[in-house]
Write a protein that binds this DNA or RNA. Structure first.
Length: 285
DNA sequence: CTTCTTGTTACTGA
DNA sequence: ATCAGTAACAAGAA
């Protein structure tokens, strides 16, 4: 599941690959994925100035007329860059089919560049979204997101102010993109385990020290995950088709029923905020 | 066959 | 207004 670290990895990779490349052709094989009428028209003849990220959203700044291509991968979306019939940029993958011939049956949009390279948007579940927006609309889209957790402004004090007068549980709060942008199920669970806070705790019950721990843990976990080029829990792959290695550092996600790495207590799998949630009843209070 | 999975939005009822 | 819960979206794994 592409969350902030996975999207960041993809964006960094793509930035090295497609800056300045001009689009010669666009093939929309599944119309539902594309939410803009002018999608093909805007892209053809345009070029990519740079790739950016806001939360889990990929933003391609286009050269012409202040337009932007927005890509949200949702659960199973992939953005794969292919040059000379060899894959050099990755995304979330399933069945390692990114290593096979592209396009495959999940390749819903293909962007062709004038130098012969291609960008594939693949999505098994077809929940991903591609659209074209202008500068004004981009600002509106960006405004829906809360603070970037890796920004300087995000610290204990900021988080303290953010949760003021809120009554949600902390897991639902961390997952809510309008408060903090980019955290999904994996990193919410890992963050709360590291902070020693139960996912079911209401935010108005947290002590100042717990808030501090959570703010610090968010940053540390996300930074480490980016360093590891993301989490390949199922099938995510990095720029060279290799797996993101953060799966080796997961302490809690996907480990329900197994022993806690800290205290050997059997980890609980529960449902919080409508999401499968793993926590240690002893380490997380 | 059923159930579960994940991100997001929409909707319900409290 | 705020919050919890659930359905919906689609496809596949178990």
């Amino acid at each position: 599941m592409p969350e902030l670290p996975e999207v960041e990895t993809i964006v960094q990779d793509l930035n090295k690959k497609i800056k300045g490349k001009r689009i010669s052709k666009v093939n929309v094989r599944l119309k539902r994925i594309v939410k803009s009428e002018n999608f093909v028209k805007v892209l053809i003849g345009n070029s990519v100035k740079e790739a950016l990220r806001r939360g889990k959203l990929i933003i391609f700044k286009l050269e012409k007329e202040n337009n932007y291509l927005l890509v949200h991968l949702r659960m199973t979306g992939q953005v794969i860059y292919q040059q000379n019939n060899r894959i050099t940029a990755g995304g979330h993958s399933d069945n390692n089919d990114n290593l096979k011939e592209l396009p495959n049956k999940h390749s819903h949009v293909i962007i062709y560049f004038t130098d012969g390279s291609k960008l594939f948007f693949n999505d098994q579940r077809q929940f991903g979204v591609l659209k074209i927006v202008n500068a004004k609309r981009l600002q509106e889209e960006k405004k829906k997101f809360g603070i970037e957790p890796l920004s300087r402004e995000f610290n204990t004090k900021y988080l303290e102010n953010l949760i003021k007068n809120k009554k949600k549980n902390i897991k639902a709060f961390l997952l809510d993109q309008k408060y903090i942008a980019g955290i999904g199920n994996i990193y919410a669970d890992e963050t709360l385990f590291r902070a020693g806070v139960s996912p079911t705790r209401r935010v108005d019950s947290l002590t100042k020290n717990e808030i501090k721990k959570i703010a610090e843990s968010v940053k540390i976990i996300l930074k480490k995950a980016i360093q590891a080029r993301g989490t390949t829990f199922n099938n995510y792959v990095d720029a060279d088709g290799n797996q993101g290695s953060f799966v080796n550092f997961l302490k809690i996600y996907g480990r329900g029923g197994k022993e806690c790495k800290k205290c050997k207590t059997i980890l609980k799998k529960i449902k919080v905020a409508g999401r499968g949630t793993v926590c240690c009843p002893k380490c997380q209070k």
